[in-house]
Write a protein that binds this DNA or RNA. Structure first.
Lengths: 232, 232
DNA sequence: CGTCCTGTGTGACCGCAATCACCCCGCGTC
DNA sequence: GACGCGGGGTGATTGCGGTCACACAGGACG
């Protein structure tokens, strides 16, 4: 499968570039499909590619010394990962794994570096992405400091509520992560996440609508749980 | 107290700069002393300064919604912090707090930006610092995924052993963090850290030498505990 | 030099979440 | 249509670490 300028244009970072530039980058890039649980980027290796996600969902994960999986962040369609190699020559710190069957466009490091020389304004966007990444990791770290496990899950759920819906009475979360995917983000067991969801469903705070939709019926109550103002 | 070019030269990032440039930056910078537990940078604010630590020790900390302190990283003399403001216009994500009475040199953001325009090679160093920061946060996050609490403490201790001494039989850790400072890095209680230290001391793995020195008598055994090959 | 504060050490108690086992349902594949 | 796999749900058990209380030592300050 070949990379086209139209395909690259679907990514917000690249969408403002001239067609000739996109043509050039497209010629140097590649597309691949990743099966569920396939490794997209390997930890500890100099991967030397920036990966753009066209379809599916990825998760940055690490493994503890005893093999336990640790969730770091999610990558949604349109976003990219693997950008640390633009900042230093170190290796990729974490694995990036496909949570669902995914389609990834890989842009080699040297093509990206050449692109950034021609379009330095992109570097500001990538720098802001890395800064945002640090902020998210800091916030995520704080979640792990919460001793109240239900609050921890509610905070994570609250993060999944679209920002535009946070003032509404009801909101929808499309394609919510599985209980397992949430559990490894929060250092708790899959069963514990399930139990918190059951409590929330029993109190009609959330309801599931198949596997691809989670409806938050009482957004303000979820926020109160997340902020510790109420307890499950 | 005034900032001199000689003072700025003590910081590795700035030591290679010409005297005239250092003179200019010195004129725009300021020195301040911070008492123990004083806040050096505030979370949630656009601090717009890069802080260089001349003396003392700082810790990046966050607070959970219920007020619990979370340790993120340490800043040692010669290092700097607050550099995210060079990458985007967002606010400072975490508090930076003095663990001991400290001396900090603050360089305003606009002075730093002007400096980087004149000396773009510094930006590569700062970019590498941020990339290194992400790697450390990823590693620290993995520590939190370890279910074995003693192993978690041993890993953190192992990180404090100077790299040049890791192959030796015995090593020294100067000015080790307090048990509380270690505890908040690892989401465990101060008493739990103390108990692990007591175990290590009882087995003659480590011994304290006053408050400013911790001797690791059996470096290889500590590494085995950290890697889970042996259990306390 | 006395007082106060901080850091370390210890003991007792208890509750919460991990762990294990198992079940059910839905979806995809053969 | 049957089978297998993954995700969600439930129950029981238990042990580990948090919490609280307290003591002691050393250093800093007045």
């Amino acid at each position: 499968m070949v990379v086209t300028p139209q395909l690259l244009k679907t990514f917000p970072l690249l969408s403002g570039l001239p067609d000739a530039i996109l043509e050039e980058v497209a010629g140097q890039s590649s597309v691949r499909k990743a099966a569920r649980r396939a490794i997209v980027l390997n930890a500890g290796q100099n991967e030397e590619q920036i990966c753009f996600l066209f379809e599916g969902r990825l998760q940055g994960v690490d493994f503890t010394i005893d093999g336990r999986e640790v969730g770091l962040y999610f990558v949604e369609p349109g976003e990219f990962c693997g950008e640390l190699c633009l900042f230093d020559e170190g290796s990729q710190p974490e694995f990036v794994m496909a949570l669902t069957p995914s389609v990834i466009v890989s842009v080699p490091l040297n093509a990206m570096q050449a692109l950034l020389k021609k379009h330095p304004e992109l570097f500001a966007t990538i720098s802001a992405k890395v800064a945002g990444h640090v902020r998210k990791m800091t916030f995520q770290r704080s979640l792990l400091g919460l001793p109240n496990i239900a609050q921890r899950v509610c905070c994570q759920l609250w993060m999944l509520v679209p920002e535009k819906d946070r003032d509404k009475e009801e909101a929808e979360i499309r394609n919510p992560p599985t209980h397992m995917e949430i559990a490894i983000m929060l250092n708790i067991s899959r069963e514990t996440v399930t139990r918190v969801f059951q409590s929330l469903q029993n109190r009609q705070i959330v309801k599931r609508d198949g596997t691809s939709l989670l409806v938050v019926s009482k957004v303000s109550v979820l926020r109160d749980y997340a902020e510790g103002k109420q307890e499950l």
